[in-house]
Amino acid sequence: MEEANVPTGVSIHTGFPNPAADSSLHGLDLHKLLVQHSASTYLFRVRGNEWENAGVFDGDIAIVDRALDPRRSDVVLWWDENRGEFAITLYTKMPPQAACWGVVTASIHEFRKITHNQGRGSKRGQ
């Protein structure tokens, strides 16, 4: 690559630009898409068949962000004291006395089980 010196002392590249230098050309990062706030995002395994019409299946992974304030149209995760379990519902269907634990931002459905096979190996790696 050639450089042309200009009086201000700034150097200008005259060769073909290095595509990697442009941050907008970095590969797509799924983590960036799915996790807006890494400090406040937690993963849950969803249970139950109630949501199959909505495309959420037993065993899917719910991505839950605690940083977000729930809006009317949101899906939320909350602790059900009566049944002693976490529940996922539309925000509008959450009982008024319950406290929202986090907003469900996405679910992951694996057609071929990926996470199952990783199992304990993912923990050992470090």
Binding site: V46, L77, D80, F86
Partner: peptide
Amino acid sequence: EYLTNWDELPEARLR
């Protein structure tokens, strides 16, 4: 191991 093992994620019931 809620945060370190895919097989032990906390569970949530769909309602």
